[in-house]
Write a protein that binds this DNA or RNA. Structure first.
Lengths: 234, 234
DNA sequence: TCAAAAGTGTTGATTATACACCCATGT
DNA sequence: ACATGGGTGTATAATCAACACTTTTGA
């Protein structure tokens, strides 16, 4: 829209535009969410997603990246727009729409200091506290989209360290889908995609025998995408 | 509320929130899009999506419904949020984010007068003119999402009249996917879903023999959904 | 009678699912 | 030596994909 004239109504009162970040992480076979305790009134002390107003001179997605950097120290992170929440009374007192974006981070990469400085905390999905406004709804929607996306994109890899084992990858998908998967079928399928490179190292952190580490091959993944494969697991 | 002209200084200090509607229709086996010719400067005479600023006292989705009603006369139409476009320079001179929403309408329901009054026109997908700003991108994204959605929801039914034939339904899916489908396999699959009710009438508008009319059974569809079926066609 | 679209089944290929035992190793 | 998680193959069922002819009827 680029009109020449504008309703006075729009000028007098202000429409606020915010972005809220749904930050997922994965640790010890659990899918987690970063929430933080509001330090300012109103709703001080309540749990909330991490957000900010969008600045006039910044792109929407950059605003999300900024919030993420401020709270976790991470840059260039996988982040995707979820949807925009715009009920007129979603924020009592203000007219504020919020563009929700979700990020997937490798949970051992984030800066613990920054997170603590912001009063933030990792909560397990399924054990979330009540969040302010429509933030619980946002999380639920994000989870839904995460499930959807995981079918068609190897999105889950964003949540794992660079080197990971197949059992770890399986645990991640189990956390996202919230059900158990068959280990043989999972391994078969994920290896058949040809996007994993087996390394010579083993990870012994979760068994005596140890499991081989793999890394993700982005080139092969690109080829897969153009060929139109899907990442659905049974 | 009478519009008033404002100067650029004021405009640049403010974040505008608009919504743009991607209105799909289906007619004569063609998927079409409703676009309109701008009547105001800047970009007067250019083709554009139909949009509006979001009012302070209206929900985001209501704004979309309002735009739709103003241009087509239709109410209570299937409409879904696509995503929000928020590049800082997407609209030169203004800082305006736009929430794109897409609608599917039965093309013989709309009001021709209203459409003409707004200088709007139906264009075939695949034969679209150049649209202002990032509107072509919006359409492309909407088409992509339409394809995705059509896999999991019988979304296409919104585009057909209440009574329709199976060949019509197939033509719709072919228009969405932009490829031909096998008539036998299509019929087999769609009937196996148990969401169509065969009527005793035939439609003879496209063949001498005539094709049986069907209608959609929303109850059975609800059952399907909870059972987790998908509407993917090969 | 013929042109044009509607309607109908089968088969082979592919993919999904279910399932149980041995391996390697640290304690 | 044993407990623990890692790793492997096969057989059945389900689904997908490809394919051609007959029917109906208005012109």
């Amino acid at each position: 829209m680029a009109p020449e004239t504008v309703d006075l109504y729009q000028i007098k009162e202000k429409m606020y535009v915010a972005t809220d970040c749904i930050i997922f992480g994965f640790h010890q076979s659990k899918l987690k969410l970063l929430v933080f305790k509001r330090k300012v009134s109103p709703l001080e002390g309540e749990w909330s997603l991490i957000g900010s107003f969008v600045r006039l001179d910044e792109d929407l997605d950059i605003a999300g990246q900024r919030v993420l950097k401020e709270t976790t120290g991470l840059e260039n992170v996988f982040m995707q727009q979820l949807r925009t929440y715009g009920k007129k009374d979603r924020d009592p007192g203000y007219r504020c729409i919020s563009v929700a974006q979700y990020a997937l981070i490798r949970i051992d990469d984030y800066s613990e200091e920054l997170v603590e400085k912001h009063g933030a905390k990792w909560y397990e999905i399924g054990d979330l506290p009540e969040l302010i406004l429509d933030h619980n709804q946002m999380v639920q929607d994000a989870l839904e989209q995460l499930k959807q996306n995981a079918r068609y994109k190897p999105i889950g890899f964003e949540l794992l360290p660079e080197k990971f084992t197949i059992p770890q990858l399986q645990a991640l998908y189990e956390a996202i889908y919230q059900r158990e998967l068959d280990a043989r079928n999972f391994r078969k399928k994920v290896l058949s995609l040809n996007v994993l490179e087996k390394l010579d190292e083993k990870d012994k952190s979760s068994s005596k025998r140890g499991a081989f580490l793999y890394k993700f091959n982005y080139e092969n993944y690109q080829n897969l995408l153009t060929a139109g494969y899907n990442f659905e697991f049974s």
